[in-house]
């Protein structure tokens, strides 16, 4: 079975999946998941579920394994040698660590935005059009243009740059570059978008723009975002998970985590007593 079927039961665009009751909206299911770089255990026995059409924030001190976990969801860790995992991650009910899982297909359905904006050294248009072209999503030239326009409009770049799409992407401001990277991911029609500290290289204004974008995207996508910024997690996320030394210490609705954390560790971290 391909990841297309396992993630996109609804076809290409994310449509409503079943009823609105909890279980049906659980899109990512992590079961007893551990991850090793060689002999070093970076993730230890994780258990959590991530819901569709929500923003899930992951917080925790540096080196606690947030990025590792994010990369485990679209198997970007596969590109690192000598890694090993235990347990399972299921996306839309299907294990993504099967022998016959098509990683390229999985990564299309589970898109990723990186910490540092990394547009291709090409034009704005080519950056966004690359996905539809290589994935074979687009039919003709007009279709590619239309998909590019749609993706750029979603991140608000069409209004800003619609008439200058042939300019080099690297000439944009960092904030614009990051939104371009998000548009590039959207153009491949993912269902889940993983964001690894997407605002850490940006100024406050650009950060607010991306946060607003995340909220809007959450109406149609499942978003998992890693952040070091407590206010950001509180502002944008529906649920928050707190990582500590490779373990998931606490996971729940953002409001609960920030107002009445169950664990002392969590409280110390979000109040800045430990970091």
């Amino acid at each position: 079975m391909s990841a297309a079927e396992l993630v996109g039961m609804s076809g290409s665009m994310p449509e409503s999946v079943g009823s609105s009751d909890g279980a049906a909206d659980d899109l990512i299911l992590v079961q007893d998941f551990s991850f090793y770089y060689g002999a070093f255990r970076a993730l230890e026995n994780l258990n959590l579920t991530v819901r569709d059409r929500e923003v899930t924030a992951l917080i925790g001190p540096s080196g606690c394994g947030k990025s590792t976990f994010l990369r485990a969801i679209n198997r970007m860790n596969d590109t690192i040698r000598g890694v090993r995992y235990e347990g399972d991650i299921r996306v839309a009910g299907q294990s993504i660590y099967q022998a016959d899982t098509d990683v390229a297909d999985l990564r299309q359905r589970v898109g990723m935005v990186f910490q540092r904006p990394n547009p291709f050294p090409q034009s704005i248009f080519d950056n966004v059009a690359y996905g539809p072209r290589v994935l074979g999503l687009a039919g003709d030239k007009a279709d590619v243009s239309e998909r590019t326009r749609l993706a750029l409009s979603q991140v608000g770049l069409w209004e800003e740059l619609g008439d200058r799409l042939d300019r080099p992407a690297l000439a944009l401001s960092p904030g614009q570059q990051q939104r371009l990277c998000i548009a590039r991911t959207l153009a491949t029609e993912p269902r889940i978008i993983l964001m690894d500290e997407p605002c850490s290289a940006l100024d406050p204004v650009a950060t607010l723009a991306i946060e607003g974008l995340m909220r809007r995207l959450a109406e149609r996508y499942c978003i998992v975002v890693v952040t070091h910024n407590m206010q950001q997690a509180a502002r944008v996320s529906d649920r928050t998970g707190f990582f500590w030394l490779g373990r998931l210490v606490e996971f729940g609705p953002t409001n609960d985590i920030f107002t009445l954390p169950q664990e002392k560790l969590t409280e110390d971290y979000i109040t800045g007593r430990r970091g």
Binding site: M76, A104, R107, Q108, G111, N118, Y130, V134, R184
Partner: peptide, 14 residues
């Protein structure tokens, strides 16, 4: 740069 490869793989390119 590796970030270029990451970006491409991350989009689902082979």
């Amino acid at each position: 740069p590796g970030s270029l490869r990451q970006a491409s793989y991350g989009l689902g390119a082979t």
